[in-house]
Amino acid sequence: MEIDSIIKKEAGFDKTIGLRNLLRKKVLSKGGKVVGSVCEIRISPRSGSLEGVMVSRGPFQKTLYIGRSYFSHLSNDSVILNIEPSLLLMSSLVVTFEGKVIGRVCEVSRKGESNEIDFITARKLFSKFTISNSGIKSIGKSIILRQGYHVTKESFWKKSE
């Protein structure tokens, strides 16, 4: 398509991507996890720049709004993030330093609206455990806790042990 451009300091037409092309495209985390698909693109009314995208995650999941500082790469095929969204840790296994599985993540509490974890809550049968960010050694397929970290246990018949 031949077009005439009227630009000053902005990137040329061929260096930009059409917002319409991004709609319904996949959003991938840093490690390739499919987070969802783009359902809305949000721009700043003042600067006109892209501020973030709304990500639809399926019929029973809350829609996510992801800010552009968490984007690594935008293309006509997908939005690739530079993070593993901490909200996707739900139902991951929590394992102590000694290898004991203490439960599955049932709640992720973040610092403000950022991706940084404040604490997580894990659940196993009737017990609930609260683990602060400082107690987490590594996050991968499961969450491994630091050596000597004392897990706060709450039972439904007895709040905070």
């Binding site: 991938l28 390739g32 293309s75 997908s78 394992v95 290898g99």
Partner: peptide, 22 residues
């Protein structure tokens, strides 16, 4: 449990491969 120092290479089988642009 026994903890390994490595991610086991064979566990990569079955994963989806995405190119640079997703």
């Amino acid at each position: 449990a026994i903890f390994l120092k490595i991610p086991v290479a064979y566990e990569i089988r079955g994963k989806i491969v995405f190119d640079r642009d997703g």
